[in-house]
Design a protein around this nucleic acid. Structure first.
Lengths: 245, 245
DNA sequence: CGCTCGATTGAACAGTATCAACTTATGTGG
DNA sequence: CCACATAAGTTGATACTGTTCAATCGAGCG
């Protein structure tokens, strides 16, 4: 809790896309040097968000997108009666805030699940710049489209998979994204609680816990709280594919 | 099956956005006359799709978006094991194909639920034109963002609502969209089967049927096959809101 | 007119939720 | 640094919602 005294203040620091090791996963994919320089000028400040704090809340005015630089987020939508649904987990290189474009207000909350840093992308400037640079425009559209495709995959999961299939698919998706970022495909540390996993997967936390235990009993995983080791990835994939049998 | 001989061939017909009664619901929202003219030049042909036919299939090369001009569509994603999930129903003024931008291939099937017409929007030309016209660019981004927000709402529905709440929310959403198109808010004709509704809502067709019957018994609806009359909209809204009680 | 597809309804069953007890971490203040 | 308080996770027993299987009915179409 005394991190402010031990870590540098990043809030006001500029960070260059051109020097960022995430540039091949993030908005700048495929840009030329000239375009990268323009992006560098646009992307204003880096912002630190501590664990448990929000990057934005539903209802707040939308002004910028955020690229996760380090850390881990969840997004949640809330119903009028207070029910909450986790709609996604975002890691380094992924964009937050796309929901805000439609009404100029955010429609979900973005909460950091660990101490994180994001790059702020002022939306008006992104529109301006993407009128100038075809590749940036196209990459931005791809990112929005990818989010739509991802959401449709979650609908498939929520609408037609059983608990074990959901959790297996979730774990495989996580490891795949972590692997793309250079992490081990077989060992991961969950940044979210059982309840948050359950919310995302449309299950209760007890069901998530039981399913973890079952996977462990079956020799697919080694589960120590939030430390997960995947012992049999092929079998996990089988769980997802094994449908109407 | 012999409609080609009784209806005019529309495939080659141009249709002007500027003269379209859907222009306030569709891509041209808020455009100037000059922009409208450019849109008119871009939007190539109208295409007729008969009931049961597909506009595009998952895996096909993506080249254009489609605006529904008349009729009704469903989109479905398929898992490797053959399971299908309806991800949306699209009516006049709504855009189809946004999923294709992310990988240059469609990731879902779009199937007409009744004889329909769509306007083809070549995607490359849309990108070009939206670099020229700020309002068009912004409107397009809004439409993509709106799809993301809608998807998150469906996740909330699938992840945390019970059968009655899901069906009530579905009916209210349908009537709201129909009302925006000038139709009655209390009478509607479903264009989809119970099975398709069930797929969209993550329920089996029997559950959908039973829930319709229950709503009818409770005096909320009058159900005659696919003809639905909403007798008590407020009560239907209550069903959605009544959560953890 | 008969066939097929879609819709309804009933009865038994399965999967997940709920409630509750207990254990294990995490974090706070003395 | 320890003790306590709180949060997170596990596990069991039971309840309930929705599924599955099956029979029947009705509407639309050739």
């Amino acid at each position: 809790m005394h991190e402010t005294s031990t870590t540098p203040r990043l809030d006001a620091l500029k960070v260059a896309c051109s020097a960022c090791n995430l540039r091949e996963l993030c908005l700048p994919v495929g840009l030329s040097d000239e375009e990268l320089t323009s992006l560098d000028n646009m992307i204003g400040t880096r912002r630190a968000v501590r664990r448990g704090e929000s990057l934005f809340h539903a209802g707040e005015t939308f002004a910028a997108l955020y690229a996760v630089r380090t850390g881990f987020f969840k997004t949640i939508v809330s119903a009028s009666d207070g029910r909450e649904q986790v709609t996604g987990f975002q890691m380094a290189g992924e964009l937050l805030g796309l929901d805000g474009i439609s009404t100029d207000r955010h429609s979900c909350d973005a909460i950091a699940l660990e101490d994180s840093q994001v790059c702020m992308i002022p939306y008006g400037q992104l529109e301006t710049l993407s009128r100038e640079f075809t590749l940036l425009q196209h990459q931005f559209h791809k990112i929005m489209s990818r989010e739509i495709v991802r959401d449709h995959g979650v609908m498939l999961l929520l609408g037609s998979m059983r608990a074990e299939e959901r959790l297996a698919a979730f774990l495989l998706n996580l490891t795949q994204r972590l692997q793309a970022r250079g992490f081990s495909p077989s060992a991961l540390v969950l940044r979210m609680t059982r309840e948050e996993i359950g919310s995302y997967l449309g299950l209760k936390l007890e069901t998530v816990s039981r399913t973890f235990s079952k996977f462990q009993d079956d020799g697919l995983l080694e589960v120590k709280q939030r430390d997960i080791r995947i012992l049999d990835q092929a079998a996990l994939q089988q769980v997802v594919n094994a449908a109407n049998c």
